[in-house]
Amino acid sequence: MNFPNNLKYSKTHEWILKQDDNIALVGITDYAQHELGDIVFVEFEPAGENKSKGDTICNLESVKAVASVYMPVSGKIKEINPKLLEDEDFALVNNSPYENGWLIQIVMSNSDELSELMDSTTYQQFVEEAK
């Protein structure tokens, strides 16, 4: 299983990639997509809303279960991945969780919160313990 070094990770299995001062991409980890199984639908919260850390971003529906994805940091949803929202190509979340299968782009309201998240090594240990 793959956990890129340039990302930060949350305990609820989201990753976040800082792209600019306050802009970041958010998705779910390889571990999370593997646990959920094939994603068949994603129901997003509307873009433009202010969210606190831990608020729901979207609900992922897989053949096994429905799971919520949470904001790893506080901020506003800037954009929803159009390949998911419009093209409904949900297999991207399984096949490319860190790249084409990103979920949302956010404007962080407090990028200091990034330091509360785990780095790749710590997250890997966290996943090992969860197994």
Binding site: V40, V63, E88
Partner: peptide
Amino acid sequence: LDEVKAAR
């Protein structure tokens, strides 16, 4: 049955 295809 291909339940993934059936759902997608």
